[in-house]
Each structure stands twice: as C-alpha cells, then as structure tokens.
C-alpha cells in the first residue's frame, strides 16, 4: 500500500512541479553473500522505481573505484530488478568492500546507495 501511495505521489508530483527526489527511488540494494572467503563469487542486486528514463551505474570500491555495470532504466517503471556478478578477480584481498549504485538522469540530481560485504 505504501509503495502504491508512493508511486501515486510520484505521479502527481511529476504532473505538478517535478520536484527532485520524487522522480526515482532505489528501493533496495544488496550484495550476497554478505560475507565469504577469497574466491567467493558475490552477486549484487538493486531494485529501482522511476518515472523518468535513467541510468543505473554500479561501482565496486576497492583498490580503485571500478565501474562494473551500467544499465538503462525505463521511465514510468515500478520495481525493476537489476543484478550481476562481481568478479572474484577484483576481490583478491580480504577486507570490507562496497558497491555503489547511482541512478542518474540528465538534468536531475542523482541518487546513490551503497551495499557492503566482507571478503575473509
């Protein structure tokens, strides 16, 4: 119900003044498993809802920030799910890593979310 209400508000808001932040939402981000040994294959996942066509950029923050995926997100969409695999070659050292998910669209402020996982 809350999600429906949110989408309704998004639609009405867009009809009015298109305030930033209401145009797209990153509902959830995750990496699984949350912890694994060196050599483990990790999977990232993001769920997004947007009114405007956008781009989802996925970046792995390790020794360098490396873009690992770029996905086109359709406009007027509810809960599109994106996922991918993080190459174990990028995770050769034990430690905490993060994956950043950035949703952007020309002329709109981007949204960013982060998921953390551990390589033992």
């Amino acid at each position: 119900m809350k999600k429906l209400l949110m989408i309704a508000v998004i639609a009405l808001s867009m009809a009015a003044c298109e305030p930033e932040g209401d145009l797209y939402v990153i509902s959830s981000v995750s990496v699984s498993p949350i912890s694994g040994d060196v050599g483990t294959e990790f999977e990232w996942q993001a769920e997004v809802s947007t009114l405007v066509a956008s781009e989802l950029t996925v970046t792995l923050n390790g020794a360098e920030s490396v873009e690992i995926a770029q996905e086109s997100v359709e406009g007027k969409s509810i809960e599109q799910l994106f996922s991918g695999v993080i190459s174990s070659g990028s995770l050769s050292q034990p430690g905490i890593y993060s994956v950043s998910f950035t949703l952007s669209s020309p002329g709109r402020t981007s949204l960013e979310r982060t998921a953390y996982f551990e390589v033992k």
Partner: peptide
Amino acid sequence: IASVFAGFFTACPQPPTIMTET
C-alpha cells in the same frame, strides 16, 4: 495528497524535496 495538490497550484518550481527513504 493535499500537499501534492497544494504544490500543483502554488508557484512552480518548488524547492526539491528529499524523501527520507532515499
């Protein structure tokens, strides 16, 4: 909903709102 409609009829553009969920 009332606030959204209020936004519609007041002078645009309104300042951007930041949704807590984001």
